[in-house]
Amino acid sequence: MRQLYKHHLFWPVAILFSLLLFNFIYSPDFFSIVVRDGKLYGSLIDILNFGAPLMLVSIGMTLVIATKGIDLSVGSIVAIAGALSCLIISRGNDQNTLSLVLSAMGMALLLSLFLGLWNGLLVAKAGIQPIIATLILMVAGRGIAQLITSGQIITVNSPKYAFIGTGALAALPVSVFVVALMLAIALLLTRKSALGLFIEAVGCNPEASRLSGIRSVMVLMLVYVFCGLCAGIAGLLVSSNVSSADGNNAGLWYELDAILAVVIGGTSLNGGRFYLIGTIIGALIIQTLTTTIYMIGIPPEITLVVKACVVLIVCLIQSETFRKTLVHRWNTRHYTAEREATSHVNQ
């Protein structure tokens, strides 16, 4: 029992479970799933489908945060990828040809890879703090997305393109499979090869990792490229879901939601250990929360207040000082400088 309680997934799962329970009590048909035209419909399916882009972005973000980094540009990459693929498709003679759709998606993903590489170069090669390095693309990326769409909303009429965002495979949304595929790739790369160890090592201590022979630069580049790719795929899902690209609003706040999902999932912003499954649950919690708030009829924008509280609580729980303050509040005297200094003594 104690082991269960201590498991890193305990809290995320518990939160998700209680959210679902609340929904069930509030509206028992929340869990009802119906089959129509060989597709499943229902709130749970919606959560999976609408949460897919966020889950994708969060997978990439998890690896970046594990290296003690952060990628603020994912929202912009989502917009750029969607914009580029919609632009290419809308320029085609027959918007529904498979080769056109595939090449559009290919081009968009290639561009996302390149944007990830750009972030990676700034962080790993130029040595700029990640938050700053990715801020550049966050600012400029919105402009680039609008440049691609010429400030308009590009709509496409291509059932084949719409398939990845709205279609179904074996009755489940295609997007679920996309997420599953990327998650499997990420898990395979990090847990079945030594890459996970290297990422965690670089996140713990880049210099010690370099001196242990790890190619820190390569590892950093790789995670930013992977994060770019994830954001690019998410961008395709988002634009395909609505069959249009909006350079201004697509992927807005994704960076923040993704960071939140990662943190809820148990990965510390200080780098090191990362939990991909935890992240997925974190993303699901955020999506469920949004759905719940819609359902009980509170204006959806208020989700932001709830998110603010969640961020704060999770960070406070993660903060060692906070925990210590709670524990030691009454039995030690209060020396401000000691807290910084004690860590040096115990080495």
Partner: peptide
């Protein structure tokens, strides 16, 4: 300052909070 949480994440929460309060 007191809980040693990165300014970035705390002010991010502040941003969510302030925007959310607008909609309240």
């Amino acid at each position: 300052h007191y809980f040693k949480i990165q300014p970035f994440i705390v002010t991010l929460a502040g941003m969510f909070l302030a925007r959310g309060l607008c909609y309240v």
